[in-house]
Every structure is written in C-alpha cells, then in structure tokens.
C-alpha cells in the first residue's frame, strides 16, 4: 500500500468519479459507445486504484460484497434476464421492451439492460477478485 497522502486524498475523489462514469457508460451502452463490459472495466480500475492507495482491506470494505458474490449475482441477473423472454412465450433471451413516457421524453426499459447489468457485475467481480487476491500478497 502506498502511504502517499496526495494519492489517497485524490483517490477518494477520483474513485467516485470513475464509478459514476462507469454507471454512465453502462446505462447508455445500448445506443452510444459503452455497455456492461466497458463500464465494468472502468469500475474495476477504480477499485484497483483504491486498493493501491488504501490497501486491499479498505478496498474490500468499500466493495461491501465479496467479489465472488458479485460474480454470482451477475450470472443470476444475466440468466434471469433471459427468462422474461421465455415467460412471454418467445425463445429464451429475447429482449422485451417497455416504453414509459415521462413528459415528452421517452424512457425505454428493456430486459437486455438487466442482462447488461449481469455482465457488468460478473466482470467487475472477476477482475476485482483477481486484483484483490494479487494485492493480498502484501509482503
């Protein structure tokens, strides 16, 4: 762990920024460059930075869940996203869309988004798990 005050204060700010940016990427993935995978990588980079600056213990605490549970949740989300299509009588994993009109702007919610969240969580879980287990090897 690097005990550099500047890095630590800066990391607090940047990690929040990066997490916001990753959610931003995830959310708009369907129409503009972004998506679950890229969002997850940005988020993992954020956690990696936090781990470098504050050490693994605190990084695990801000992650609140064990990376493996994240992976599990991710896969559940991804799998479940497909069930909606099945429930609607269509083949597994067909995307269903819901259009909500808020004022004049149109909000489109869809099952692929849930699938994307699944991808997001799994990839974060995996990358962060690897980074944390490597970091753990403090000597």
């Amino acid at each position: 762990m690097m005990r550099s005050l500047i890095l630590q204060t800066f990391t607090r700010l940047l990690v929040t920024l990066m997490l916001l940016f990753s959610l931003f990427l995830l959310w708009r993935g369907h129409n503009l460059p972004g998506g679950g995978f890229i969002g997850a990588l940005v988020a993992s980079a954020a956690f990696a930075l936090h781990a470098i600056a504050f050490g693994v213990a605190s990084a695990r605490s801000i992650l609140r869940y064990d990376p493996r549970t994240l992976m599990a949740w991710g896969m559940i989300f991804a799998g479940a996203a497909g069930l909606f299509g099945l429930a609607a009588g269509k083949p597994y994993m067909t995307g269903l869309w819901l259009e909500i009109h808020i004022g004049e702007s149109l909000l489109k919610l869809g099952t692929p988004l849930i699938f994307d969240i699944g991808v997001f969580l799994t990839v974060i879980g995996m990358v962060v798990a690897v980074i944390f287990s490597l970091e753990e090897e403090e000597f």
């Binding site: 993935g29 995307g95 489109k108």
Partner: peptide, 9 residues
C-alpha cells in the same frame, strides 16, 4: 432491439 449501438446490441 431499440438500440443504435450495433456492437452492444
């Protein structure tokens, strides 16, 4: 698929 970003779609 209601999406313009073909790669992600």
């Amino acid at each position: 698929a209601y999406g313009t970003n073909i790669v992600n779609v």
